[in-house]
């Protein structure tokens, strides 16, 4: 391990070389009033480009983890739509469960409403052929250690 000496002791700084940090909310969106009764329009799905979403969540099922960028004001339905583009299952057939509390997340509520914060782990289950949802199942890496 002599090459360890070349390993940088701490993560490099990224700030200095960034040519132009994207201005936040450059488009001048008014701040979303969280308490609005019928949330008018969910934030458009442009977080992949343009500006950096404020957080991400980790959606897990079996041996897969999906890192989903999002904002606290987005609804669970928004998240399911983002997932649909990756896993090809419509929101209807997805169920998201907050792993820490085992609560099934409600489509129409926002992430903030349901205490889903940055880096939170959310379990994904899918609808089975018999129309019921499968049990939460997240694989543990330790069960897959090579036994050699």
């Amino acid at each position: 391990p002599s090459n360890l000496s070349t390993v940088r002791p701490s993560p490099p700084r990224f700030g200095s070389t960034d040519p132009a940090p994207p201005p936040r909310l450059a488009c001048g969106l008014p701040p979303v009033a969280v308490a609005s009764p019928a949330s008018p329009d969910p934030p458009p799905q442009r977080s992949a480009l343009g500006r950096v979403a404020s957080m991400y969540i980790r959606v897990k099922r079996h041996k897969s983890t999906y890192f989903i960028q999002c904002d606290p004001t987005e609804t669970i339905l928004n998240i399911k739509q983002k997932l649909e583009s990756i896993i090809d299952h419509p929101p209807n057939n997805q169920r998201l469960i907050l792993l820490a509390t085992n609560n099934v997340l409600n489509d129409s509520k926002t992430l903030a409403d349901q205490k889903v914060e940055n880096d939170t782990i959310v379990a994904l289950t899918l609808r089975k052929d018999n129309n019921e949802f499968e049990e939460v199942s997240i694989a543990n890496p330790d069960d897959f250690m090579s036994s050699s």
């Binding site: 480009l49 041996k63 897969s64 999906y66 583009s85 890496p141």
Partner: peptide, 25 residues
Amino acid sequence: EAEEMAGVVKLISAEGFEFFVDKKA
């Protein structure tokens, strides 16, 4: 560049676990 940054890539670990992350990330 923006075009190339779009999309998702799958990173696969030694044990075969899959991580789907934004290409940008």
